[in-house]
């Protein structure tokens, strides 16, 4: 029993997969920053960013459907921005009677809401392409290149390594709980117990998981020490960045800069 589905990496042969992870991470961050910096209602900029995103998805051979489906996972949060449709003052578009109140959607309100949703949707697509086209160990290398402290990168590495091991353990615990959670056919017998009880059971399982994590970390520590670990984090030097990678980086930055420049004019 192994939790493979937790790993979002999809191996493909594509120019996006072959790109140096440091360049890929930097460009993803700059893309998201560009989306964030573009003003509300800058439709030309959004269209250009979207065509850029779509081109990258096509090049990545991950499948447009796969990326869009995953991107929709981030949508529920849009609810948080829904009220702005009605609260920003401006020309009224539609007026809806809700009970004793009237909700009036305004043009600037709708403009802001759609802009936020679009920016978010574009950003998450690029984050998905990054995760699906880059093995996590390569992302760790990119983080080191971006000067993230070594200890933090080491923690990321350890968490990622044991994510799968502990997720397997959690799944075993969940199955054991499911196997013992019967439903009674007798009338008046409610299954599942009270909320507090269910919470305590889940908590007991979490405690069990934490205890195992403690014990496992002891064994890992011994395995590290017996191979010379002394508390310092060491790693091989980063490989050099190739010329074509530098060119890709420069090209990507130029395109995004140009799009941002357009956002200033229109």
């Amino acid at each position: 029993m192994h939790i493979h589905f937790l790993d979002p990496y999809r191996p493909r042969v594509s120019p996006i997969h072959q790109l140096d992870p440091r360049v890929k991470l930097s460009l993803t961050l700059v893309f998201i920053l560009t989306a964030a910096l573009s003003p509300i209602g800058a439709w030309p900029v959004y269209i250009l960013l979207f065509s850029l995103a779509l081109s990258i998805v096509l090049l990545s051979a991950l499948g447009v459907g796969y990326v869009l489906k995953r991107a929709s996972l981030a949508f529920p949060f849009v609810l948080a921005a829904l009220p702005v449709i009605f609260t920003i003052p401006g020309a009224a578009l539609v007026s809806l009677p809700v009970g004793a109140w009237r909700l009036t959607a305004t043009a600037p309100g709708v403009e802001r809401f759609v802009s936020v949703a679009l920016k978010s949707w574009l950003s998450v697509q690029m984050a998905i392409v990054l995760a699906a086209s880059t093995p996590f160990p390569d992302l760790l290398l990119a983080m080191r290149a971006l000067r993230i402290p070594r200890l933090l990168v080491a923690l990321f590495a350890l968490m990622w390594r044991y994510l799968f091991v502990l997720a397997d353990e959690a799944l075993r615990l969940i199955r054991a709980r499911a196997a013992r959670s019967g439903q009674s056919d007798l009338p008046g017998m409610r299954s599942g117990g009270s909320v507090a009880w269910r919470g305590r059971v889940a908590g007991g399982m979490a405690g069990n998981l934490f205890l195992r994590a403690f014990e496992r970390s002891d064994r890992i520590y011994m395995a590290m020490v017996s191979r010379g670990y002394d508390g310092e984090i060491r790693s091989l030097p980063l490989p050099a960045i190739g010329q074509s990678s530098w060119l890709t980086l420069a090209g990507g930055l130029a395109i995004l800069g140009l799009i941002l420049g357009l956002g200033l004019i229109f």
Binding site: R161, R216, I220, M222, G228
Partner: peptide, 18 residues
């Protein structure tokens, strides 16, 4: 417990590095 690094290479390289 013995393999605590993300990749096989990192794990086998750990001893020599230290």
């Amino acid at each position: 417990d013995q393999l605590f690094s993300p990749t096989v290479f990192d794990d086998v390289a750990f001893g020599p590095l230290y």
